[in-house]
């Protein structure tokens, strides 16, 4: 955040305690996705702190208040998982997906910057853009801004091969997540790769459109588990900057499962 202090380093014991006892209280998570159905039963009547749609039309990017309804169900599923892991975290709906190809990077950038300006602590990015040079600066600008302003970026990686370069997952300042098999709130760490973290990527009854649910699999659903765990941590240690939070989570994560 702008008024970033220099919090003390937290040790592994404090980190484990925070991950076990934190609820996400006081932490705001921006879901950059396909929208959220805030009335879904799995969201327990939470009030979305923002409900926005960012569009690109005719080369002009515009923000539409109160128009963040879910186009596909994907964002609602992500929000449902977040809410399970960090039930007291506040969730903001930033619909940036649904605008394709060239428009997508600029729409995502606009949504991310808006979330940063509105004081969100975590940006959940359950998407990936091909890691091509032409898209690089469109992502680097807001990823760097998030880092310097103390905002945490959690990103899903490419499932085909986590080493395939994708934005935003392949920025070192992001907490990048691939699919793993484990318990719902279990965190895994794989040293030596840009995509360092793993979490369960399967949800038997993920929240979906029209109050329904679906069985889903994908790294898209690993990322919100890590965002939720991060929210637990930050709720106990507010102001922990991205570098320290990432290091603390590295220190307590389980070894990558075979």
């Amino acid at each position: 955040m702008d008024d970033l202090q220099s919090p003390p380093w937290i040790n592994p014991s404090e980190t484990r305690t925070a991950l076990a006892q934190g609820t996400g209280h006081g932490i705001r998570i921006a879901v950059l996705d396909s929208g959220i159905d805030g009335n879904h039963p799995q969201l327990d009547g939470i009030t979305l702190t923002d409900n926005l749609c960012i569009k690109a039309e005719g080369g002009i990017i515009s923000v539409h208040e109160g128009d963040g309804q879910d186009l596909f169900g994907h964002g609602t599923a992500v929000a449902g998982i977040l809410h399970k892991i960090a039930p007291d975290a506040e969730i903001g709906n930033f619909r940036v997906l649904g605008a394709f190809k060239e428009a997508r990077a600029s729409v995502i950038r606009a949504g991310a910057r808006l979330a940063i300006d509105r004081g969100y602590h975590i940006l959940n990015c359950s998407f990936g853009c091909p890691g091509k040079t032409e898209f690089l600066m469109g992502f680097k600008s807001w990823i760097d801004e998030a880092y310097t302003r103390g905002v945490h970026v959690v990103a899903a990686c490419n499932n085909q091969d986590y080493s395939i370069t994708e934005w935003p997952a392949h920025f070192p300042s992001a907490i990048s997540v691939s699919r793993a098999y484990g318990e719902p709130d279990q965190l895994f760490f794989r040293p030596g790769d840009l995509v360092e973290f793993g979490a369960l990527g399967e949800e038997k009854k993920a929240a979906w459109l029209e109050g329904g649910s679906r069985s889903v699999i994908g790294s898209s659903f690993s990322a919100p588990r890590v965002s939720g765990l991060l929210a637990r941590l930050l709720s106990k240690h507010p102001g922990l900057p991205p570098l320290l939070a990432k290091s603390a989570m590295r220190a307590v994560a389980d070894p990558w499962p075979n």
Partner: peptide
């Protein structure tokens, strides 16, 4: 949705 997110997806 997969085209929008760029993320693989399996659903039953």
């Amino acid at each position: 949705m997969v085209f929008a997110t760029g993320q693989p997806f399996c659903e039953n």
